[in-house]
Write a protein that binds this DNA or RNA. Structure first.
Length: 494
RNA sequence: GGUCGCGUGGCCGAGUGGCUAGGCAGAGGUCUGCAAAACCUCGUACGGCGGUUCGAGUCCGUCCGCGACCUCCA
């Protein structure tokens, strides 16, 4: 099967480019993972779902992909300079590593709920202190870092003489200087735009390591530079993360890599956009927030009911990863219906059979099927791919209802249609069928018995009995639909 | 204030120079014991103003509104 050429919007060049991996057939992808100091944020879920779909699509295209997603368990400072991990530990009276484990577990559980694939490698910052110290030393040796009072800073001015600093985020060093007027706050730094790559720990710090400069800990940006180099090489294909990480995190990551080895770490920089709620940033302080659990259970003032993880995922898929997505109750309700419509059509499609070698509808259907792939290859455009699938849903339903004649579809075309639907819904989008876990053989047998009994009642025009069965089943989230060719049933998730 | 981005029909959300996005909701119809589902038909939208162009939602300018980021161990 010929796959369309993959195009990716590269934030480094701000252009849509043809994706060409460094090594033919192989892709190295690094995505900045979560800092595990509290429960995973719904916005994080969107980011990692988006990259999971890119990962899955690259696999679908036949690439051998090494997908590295780190876990940050040290070095990510808060505004007040306190380590996020240390703060979490203090608040819960736990060891920092206990905090990291607790929330890493929670994060993994949530990723499982959203049915994302595990990365190939999931390195932790604390497990790569040696690599980070080595990188700091290299940066110093190359003349791009300096020590002051036990801490080491990245010398952005020295760096800017040889490399452009700010190429990813569009920032200019002079402007950064102008912004930071309070020189008292600059401490040991030579220039306001310099940033710490090793920090000396004070006595109260729990997480600290020996280094040539001090007992301390690495700067936040350093871990990704060190770990991506270790597992993907000095230059790899794709680097991803939320677009809030563009500056300073990714900008500094690029600077560190260039300063240590002289090369740009990744060729394609991809950023996911933010998830809003009711048009505004999710924020705990003003109450405009919802946890994934609340979203699933419906226990929140922002929604009228609970939505299953797959409905939430489908909702995310209807929006391109590069656009802000506004989470609203109305939007979720629409997504829920769309998701069931798509899944119902998929099930109907699997029931269709054709004995024709070829048919008059083949050309049209093949064209639509190819477009699904083309759209997805255009910067992972899930909403456009979904739109095409929905056009095919209409065609499938016409065959199901005998409005169109299935004999006009060749068996090869029908097989291709089944394959594209299966590949996109399950392999690429990573959706699961609603109520799948409950559909055992016994339930199937039981339901066909119930439906037979109800059919007898209907034959005798015993509508009260017929409706009673339907209503009682509805209470159990089993929905009955009387079609021309008999009665179908589906289990709804929520 | 600076950097980046956004503003599309009732709602969500694609599209980036001429071609139907799609989903949900709504109206009418087919089918039907009723309901649901499914199918058909229907909305002709692109923040305001100005400009470029044969032609702009799509490019440029400007204004308005919205969002993200603007780190440093104080």
């Amino acid at each position: 099967m010929s796959k369309a050429t993959l195009h990716i919007v590269n934030n480094l060049t701000r252009q849509k480019e043809v994706f060409t991996p460094i090594n033919d057939g192989f892709v190295g992808m690094y995505v900045c993972g979560p800092t595990v100091y509290s429960d995973v944020h719904l916005g994080n879920c969107r980011t990692f779902v988006s990259f999971d779909i890119m990962y899955r699509y690259l696999l679908y295209l036949g690439y051998k992909v090494r997908y590295v997603r780190n876990i940050t368990d040290v070095g990510h400072l808060l505004d007040d300079g306190e380590d996020r991990m240390a703060k979490g530990a203090k608040a819960e009276q736990l060891q920092p590593m206990e905090v990291a484990q607790k929330y890493a577990n929670g994060f993994h559980h949530m990723m499982q709920i959203f049915n994302t694939k595990r990365p190939s490698i999931e390195p932790r910052a604390t497990g790569h202190i040696i690599e980070q110290i080595e990188m700091v030393q290299q940066i110093i040796d190359n003349g791009f870092g300096y020590e002051a009072n036990g801490s080491v800073y990245f010398d952005t001015l020295a760096y800017a003489k040889e490399h452009p600093y700010g190429e990813l985020s569009g920032r200019v060093i002079d402007e950064l200087k102008a912004e930071s007027r309070d020189l008292k706050k600059q401490g040991d730094k030579k220039h306001p735009s310099d940033f710490a790559i090793w920090m000396k720990a004070d006595d109260s710090h729990i997480m600290k390591w020996e280094s040539p400069w001090s007992l301390g800990f690495p700067g936040w940006h350093l871990e990704c530079s060190a770990m991506s180099t270790k597992y993907l090489g000095e230059t790899f294909d794709i680097h991803g993360g939320g677009n809030d990480l563009k500056f300073p995190h990714h900008e500094n990551e690029i600077a560190q890599n260039k300063a240590s080895c002289g090369c740009t770490p990744a060729r394609y920089w991809v950023h996911t956009n933010m998830l809003l709620m009711n048009g505004k940033k999710m924020s705990k302080s003003d109450g405009n927030t919802i946890t994934p659990q609340q979203l699933f259970s419906g226990e929140s003032e922002h929604i009228t009911k609970g939505y299953s993880p797959m409905v939430v995922k489908f909702f995310m898929l209807q929006c391109h990863y590069n656009s802000t997505l506004d989470l609203t109750d109305g939007g979720l309700q629409a997504a829920e219906k769309g998701y069931y419509k798509l899944m119902d059509a998929y099930r109907a499609l699997t029931q269709l059979t054709s004995t024709s070698e070829s048919g008059s509808d083949d050309e049209k259907l093949n064209g639509m099927l190819d477009t699904v792939v083309t759209e997805m290859s255009d910067d992972f455009n899930t909403p456009k791919a979904l739109a095409k699938l929905f056009e095919l849903v209409t065609e499938v339903n016409k065959y199901k209802e005998n409005i169109s004649d299935i004999r006009n579809v060749g068996s090869d075309t029908l097989d291709k249609m089944k394959k594209i639907f299966f590949d996109f819904l399950f392999d690429i989008f990573g959706l699961t069928e609603p109520g799948q876990e409950g559909n055992s053989d016994k339930l199937d047998g039981l339901m066909s018995l119930v439906i037979d009994l109800r059919a007898q009642a209907r034959d005798q025009k015993d509508w009260p009995t017929s409706d009673l069965i339907r209503d009682q089943l509805a209470e159990l989230n089993i929905v009955i639909k009387d079609g021309k060719d008999g009665t179908n049933w589906t289990v709804k998730n929520s």
